[in-house]
Amino acid sequence: MCGAIQGGPSLEGVDVANQAVIQGIVTRDGEPVGNAYVRLLDRTGEFTAEVPTSATGQFRFFAAPGEWTLRTLAPRSASVDRPVVAALGSVADIAVTV
């Protein structure tokens, strides 16, 4: 994972039918958190990727089908883990509250 793109890689020009997308938004008190970091951990807990959230609190990963954990780090809060299942041709939308 090189070049962590703010908010995650763009969907532009991507054939989503061939991707297992995990995306979402990080909020605090209903407001987007634009300076959080979201890590994608595999089923063994091993680091796979990490992106900073966009100004609008959003993030996106192109994962592989399977079980993953999203770990969100944000200023002034403890890290938040959310389990997520990714499947080919679908977009898993996750709302993370910190």
């Binding site: 090189c2 991707q19 091993e46 796979t48 990727a49 192109f62």
Partner: peptide, 16 residues
């Protein structure tokens, strides 16, 4: 590298 790159299941992260 990640275990998948090591094993040869991935050449590089899919979007890169």
């Amino acid at each position: 590298r990640s275990p998948d790159e090591f094993a040869g299941r991935l050449l590089a992260p899919a979007h890169l």
